[in-house]
Design a protein around this nucleic acid. Sequence first.
RNA 1: GGCCCCGUGGUGUAUCGGUUAGCACGCCAGGUUUUCAACCUGGAAGGGCGGGUUCGACUCCCGCCGGGGCUACCA
Length: 468
Amino acid sequence: METWAPMSISEKDLRVRFAPSPTGALHVGGARTALYNWLAARHSGGKLVLRIEDTDLERSTEANVRQIIEALEWLELDWDEGPLSQVARAPEHAAALQRLLDSGAAYHDAATADDVRAWKNEHGAGKGYRGIPDPDGSGAVRLRVPADGDTVVDDLIRGEVRFPNASQDDFVIARADGSVLYNFAVAVDDAEMGITEVIRGDDHLSNTPKQLLVLGALGVEPPRYAHVPLLHGPDGKKLSKRHGAASVQELREAGYLASAVRNYVALLGWGPGDDETLLDTAELIARFRPEDVGRSSAVFDEKKLRWMNGRYMREMDLDRYTEAVATFEGRKVDERLRVACMIAQEKAQTLAEVWPLIRFLFEEPVEDEKAWRKTMKDHATSALTSAREALAGLESFEAAGVEAALEPIPERLNLKPGKVYQPIRVAITGTTVSPGIFESVAALGKVETLDRIDSALRRLATAPEPAA
RNA sequence: GGCCCCGUGGUGUAUCGGUUAGCACGCCAGGUUUUCAACCUGGAAGGGCGGGUUCGACUCCCGCCGGGGCUACCA
């Protein structure tokens, strides 16, 4: 049998990480990165570690950390180690920094950002800045970058990407106060946490040579990198808040299922290689390989998610469906909700669409003047009168019985079926859209149905519509 | 400006030197139908542009154009 993974990756020892910075909600792009890491770990039997990239004290908040963790939990993506705070590792960072300072691989430079900009103006933007070691050891700490040669990233997805050292600045790895910067902390952490494969967004590709340089200075073996393309909105711009449901939280509130979101998001930039579209989580785990991820950026298209979500909704068994609706609406599961869900299941594409379809079973009909005017024309009175009569004589109020009772009416009145059923629908629900009329009537029950038909009839008598 | 990545229909993708360029969402038309969905059938719609290489390029090379990322004592 052929082995799937490249020889360089020993399956069980794979260690990946998801390292979000808690500067905002987890959005779809981050969710996909998390998913890919999770799939890689579960596929190989390796480990996933969750690390919170919180070294930006200004923007990182506890609330954001909580929100990200909740989003991951909702997505049902678990991790094996963590969450670890990056700031908590400050001592390790400081130690690594000191080693570099001692070895001369890094040095203090008194130059400010303005100084560097001025230097660039003079020497050209394509030339990497080289600082001057400050004799007093003050100023930010910069890493010494080789004068020439390339730093090459051997990327699982991109292939070999070369970055000329000559155009790379001696970049800052620690502030004057000694606190380390992102590219340094990441490199140190990935190395010390034994990360074997870094799967992250494309926006980090340009950062990778810096991390490689840090790792090289530290004398440690770098992990393998896999940079996945970024996600864009329908307008082609980088995905952001302005693109509708962009965060996991919003997706959840819009009534999507975690399973559908996982399936959909997995397909953004990755495919199983054949024409399969609906892949459950087990299949995703079995078939996902980071090296199969595409190179071009993808656009998040909510329309397809909606379709896919509808598929998942219809495939759920009734108990789980009812449970999901109850949770979404903040209600208790009971027999009535169960019946409601049963008759609505095939109609809704999202959890949010369920309640409008079944609320008439729990509340008075909604007020919808447009629906009333459109439906309650002249024929409505005779249709409703006949329906009431037929229903009133019913012993058992099952959908089949209701259908048998109502079904002869259109012909008897010489009306199209819709002319009979729509008035009933509007009478009992208030709207023109509902689950099947027979099921709806049956679910509502005899007393309430008759009652609602009666009040519709009363209204028709009091305020007759002009002839249709 | 500099460095880097990307470019198959509206969207996600398959094919990766020879195909009627496949599939899915969406869209359009028709069917089914008690509404809305669902479902069924059919249809429109694609290799950014220009040069090469080759008997033959969506597939390889170069240029251009377009999109994106990084360029902070942010992450």
